[in-house]
Simulated assay, not measured.
Amino acid sequence: MHDLLPAPAISPLRQRLIEEMNLRRFSHETQRNYLRDVGRLATFLGRRPDTASAEDLRRFQVEQREAGVPVPTLNGIVSALRFFFTHALDRPDLARRLVRLAYPRTLPVVLSRAEVARLLAATTCLKHRAALAVAYGAGLRVAEVAALKVTDIDSARMLIRVERGKGGRYRNALLSADLLALLRQWWRAGRQQGVMLGDGWLFPGQHALKPVSTRQLRRVVVEAARAAGIAKRVGPHTLRHSFATHLLEDGTDIRVIQVLLGHAKLDNTAFYTKVATRTVRTVTSPLDRLGLFEAGESAAGS
Rank of each mutant, 00 (worst) to 15 (best):
A67T: 10
W201K: 05
V109F: 01
R129D: 02
R191G: 12
R82D: 11
R97I: 04
P236C: 05
F243D: 02
L35G: 08
L107Q: 15
E66D: 13
H2R: 10
I153K: 01
D3E: 13
D250I: 01
F26L: 11
V212N: 00
A264D: 11
Q192F: 04
N22H: 14
L132H: 00
G76P: 06
R278V: 03
A138C: 13
H263M: 11
R16N: 12
L119N: 00
D288A: 15
A138Q: 08
F60P: 00
L292E: 12
T124R: 05
Q192N: 14
V259T: 06
W201P: 03
E29Q: 13
G205L: 00
S79F: 05
V162D: 08
A7W: 07
R281G: 09
L132R: 03
V221Y: 01
A225P: 06
V256R: 08
I77Q: 04
V142Q: 01
A224R: 04
V116I: 02
P70W: 06
G76M: 04
A228I: 10
H241Q: 00
L148F: 02
M158A: 11
L5Y: 12
L94D: 10
V222W: 10
R91G: 01
A7N: 13
L35F: 07
A227T: 07
Y272T: 12
Y34E: 06
A67K: 15
Y103E: 15
I230L: 14
L98D: 05
T273K: 11
K166N: 09
S79I: 08
D50V: 08
Q258H: 11
Y170H: 01
R96L: 14
R113G: 08
R97K: 09
T86W: 04
R59D: 06
P104D: 15
R226H: 13
A88S: 14
K274S: 15
L94F: 13
L119C: 07
L266H: 05
L261T: 01
V150I: 11
G39D: 12
E20C: 01
R289S: 09
D288Y: 14
Q61A: 11
A147S: 13
D250L: 00
A130E: 06
P8R: 13
R58C: 08
S302R: 09
A231S: 15
W187C: 12
R91A: 05
A299L: 14
D288W: 13
E144V: 07
P211G: 02
A295R: 13
L41V: 09
S285I: 12
V109W: 00
V145Y: 03
R96G: 07
S298I: 03
R32D: 07
A147W: 00
L120C: 05
E144K: 04
L202Y: 05
P286W: 12
A122V: 12
A146C: 12
S242Q: 02
R97S: 11
R96V: 01
R25K: 09
T273Q: 13
G167I: 04
L13R: 04
Y170F: 12
R188K: 14
V109L: 00
G229D: 07
P12Y: 11
I10S: 12
R255N: 08
A146V: 08
